[in-house]
């Protein structure tokens, strides 16, 4: 890996944030984890990650609006967003949010990691 892949993870659950951090770092990612979306755009712009993992249940405004904010930002919009939720209708939520992919909770990290690799290597349109 010539350059370190940065990933920003938004999840309100401390345990899961820890688990994501461990697993992604274990897989060589540089992980930036946040419990909320306060100052979302600024934080993300500072980091400029290759990938964003967005939980549906994220304060204050929730994952859908957060994702839409990212996707409406001219600088951030190219960054792939994986939508994560414990809700059964994660797929619909992801589509609504304008995310690039989604993952149910509980998740299989190998599958998630493969998806992440796939997304960052996807040629930009």
């Amino acid at each position: 890996m010539p350059a370190v892949n940065k990933i920003v993870i938004f999840d309100d659950d401390d345990d899961l944030l820890g688990i994501f951090r461990f697993l992604f770092e274990d897989s060589g990612w540089e992980v930036y984890a946040f419990e909320n979306c306060n100052d979302l755009i600024r934080k993300t712009k500072e980091i400029m990650p290759r990938l964003i993992l967005m939980d549906n249940w994220i304060p204050p405004q929730g994952g859908i609006i957060a994702t839409q904010m990212i996707k409406n930002d001219s600088i951030l919009k190219e960054i792939p967003v994986i939508f994560v939720s414990a809700n059964n209708d994660v797929k619909e939520l992801a589509i609504k949010a304008g995310a690039d992919a989604y993952t149910e909770k509980p998740f299989d990290f190998d599958v998630l990691n493969d998806l992440a690799i796939l997304l960052i290597n996807k040629p930009r349109a």
Binding site: D13, D15, L16, I19, F20, F22, L23, D26, W57, S85, A86, N87, N88, K105, P106, F107, D108, F109
Partner: peptide, 23 residues
Amino acid sequence: GLASHELKTPLASISGYLQILGR
């Protein structure tokens, strides 16, 4: 809806920890 979310969130954590342990 809430219940399922609330149930699945800990399940996700358990699953996650198990995966960490697996590594």
